[in-house]
Simulated assay, not measured.
Amino acid sequence: MGLPQLETCCFVLDLKTGNIVMGCLNAFLSFTLFVIMIVVACTIEPLEVKAYHDDDVSAEAALTGLYAMSIILVIMFLAKFCFDLFFVYGVVMEKASIIRAYFVMWIVFFLLSMFTFFLNSPHYSAGTISVEVFYISLNVYAILLSNSFYKLLNTREEV
């Protein structure tokens, strides 16, 4: 049993156009989350310094962990942004190997992102959580689209 095969994107676009649109949208959202996580990391560090000067060890430890996870997410979203751009290139050029590599990278990124985000979600604002949930659901649909396009490219090559 595999992933469901899609015939079109949003019942309107063909798979190639849909993958280009979703890849560009993913790149935009990856960049947006990259910037949001930079802002979160920048707002946490002064709180961490204040907790250090107030000798609040438990607050300092919690903020240090949150700061470290925010930096990890910044790096992950930057990498995701670069992979999204590379994916769009792969779809335009119809390179099945790039699409397969994106699929594998996305699964690894998805697991890491879910783990780090939900581990620290109580500390994030409602807006950050809403954007992340929308981003994750959009990426699930995008991965279904890219898998369907990859299968379509493989059937074309066999014929």
Score class of each variant (00 low, 15 high):
122 P>D: 06
134 F>D: 01
29 L>T: 07
37 M>A: 04
135 Y>N: 12
16 K>N: 03
86 F>T: 12
123 H>G: 07
77 F>N: 15
145 L>N: 07
150 Y>A: 06
19 N>V: 02
6 L>D: 11
32 T>F: 08
105 M>D: 09
131 V>E: 04
6 L>K: 14
125 S>I: 07
106 W>E: 12
109 F>A: 06
25 L>Q: 07
149 F>N: 03
35 V>L: 12
16 K>Y: 03
89 Y>R: 07
7 E>L: 13
43 T>S: 08
126 A>R: 10
119 L>A: 10
110 F>A: 11
78 L>V: 08
103 F>R: 14
140 V>C: 11
45 E>R: 00
98 I>K: 15
143 I>Y: 03
114 M>C: 11
125 S>W: 09
134 F>N: 02
2 G>N: 15
106 W>N: 13
49 V>D: 05
149 F>C: 03
108 V>M: 10
118 F>N: 05
11 F>T: 06
152 L>Q: 15
1 M>E: 10
21 V>K: 07
91 V>R: 09
25 L>E: 03
29 L>K: 04
20 I>H: 04
15 L>Q: 09
127 G>S: 12
140 V>F: 06
145 L>Q: 06
24 C>M: 12
126 A>E: 13
13 L>D: 14
5 Q>L: 14
74 V>T: 09
65 G>L: 05
8 T>R: 14
87 F>Y: 15
76 M>N: 08
83 F>M: 15
49 V>Q: 02
12 V>R: 11
19 N>H: 05
25 L>M: 10
99 I>H: 05
138 L>A: 13
7 E>F: 07
71 I>H: 04
18 G>A: 09
120 N>S: 15
124 Y>Q: 08
143 I>V: 14
106 W>Y: 13
143 I>R: 03
95 K>G: 00
7 E>S: 13
32 T>N: 02
40 V>I: 09
84 D>V: 07
62 A>W: 00
110 F>G: 04
103 F>K: 13
25 L>C: 04
133 V>M: 12
26 N>S: 15
5 Q>S: 12
129 I>V: 15
27 A>E: 13
87 F>S: 14
91 V>I: 12
70 S>E: 02
32 T>Y: 09
61 A>L: 05
33 L>F: 05
46 P>Y: 01
38 I>S: 08
